[in-house]
Amino acid sequence: MNSLPEPPDYSRFDQLLSSLHLQVGAAELHGVISALLCAAHTDAHVAWFEELFSELPNGDLLVKEMRRLLGQLYQITERQIGDEGLAFAPFLPSEDVPIEGRAQALSEWSQGYLFGLGMAGVTEEKLAEDGREVVADLTELTRLDYEQIESGESAEADLMELTEFVRVGALLVREELRPEEEASHEAG
């Protein structure tokens, strides 16, 4: 059994995005990538990546490193989403980050995922009822008041539950958008 490679270090990735003054954080960017892959719109990321980097000098070492890490994150996410072992997970900060920061990242991931679905041309009409519910719930999650979250076991459990919901919801949307692929996995 092949183990999937680990994604880049979240903190380093996010800091690099910030130092390049890109208007997107690591979680939101991963949400976009995930949605594009779930919608089988795998070429949309190329134009979007070019747009992200359009104002930055190509020869800059930080830009080269960011492009490399972005390509790595894309490839890992593509493999995770297609993995039958359900290895996919939102790219979020580690547990040593305060809960407010992790909740904010989950909210931003949801925002990115919804943006990515829009980029891929996914409309409510293309989703079944369960998929529409996931989109509605992700929309609500983008409005999460993460600054009001108080740390504690209950809040940690709630955040873990929300993260699992987001993970499973993204895979459910993928299944609805790519039924022929899911059917071939079941037959094979």
Rank of each mutant, 00 (worst) to 15 (best):
M1P: 08
N2M: 11
S3A: 08
P8H: 05
R12Y: 05
D14T: 05
L20A: 11
L22S: 01
Q23A: 14
Q23H: 12
Q23W: 04
G25F: 06
L29H: 03
G31S: 05
I33D: 02
S34Q: 06
A39S: 13
A40R: 13
H41W: 04
T42C: 14
H45F: 15
A47F: 12
A47R: 15
W48I: 14
E50T: 07
L52Q: 15
F53L: 15
F53T: 11
S54L: 02
G59V: 08
G59W: 08
G59F: 13
D60W: 12
L61P: 03
L62M: 11
K64H: 10
R67F: 07
L69M: 13
L73A: 12
L73E: 05
I76G: 02
I76P: 00
Q80A: 12
I81F: 02
D83G: 06
L86R: 10
F88V: 07
F88M: 08
A89M: 00
A89Q: 08
F91P: 02
E95P: 00
D96A: 05
D96F: 03
P98W: 02
G101D: 11
A105Q: 07
A105H: 07
A105S: 14
S107R: 13
S107N: 10
E108R: 15
W109N: 00
G112P: 09
Y113M: 06
G116E: 04
M119H: 11
A120G: 15
G121C: 06
T123K: 08
T123F: 01
E124N: 07
E124M: 10
G131F: 03
R132L: 08
V134C: 06
V134T: 03
A136E: 13
D137F: 03
L138R: 02
L141K: 08
R143G: 14
R143S: 15
L144C: 09
D145C: 05
Y146I: 08
E147N: 13
G152Q: 07
S154P: 00
D158Y: 08
D158S: 14
M160Q: 05
T163Y: 01
V166E: 01
V166F: 01
V173N: 03
V173A: 04
E176Q: 15
P179L: 14
E181R: 14
E181I: 15
E182V: 15
E182Y: 09
A183D: 09
E186L: 14
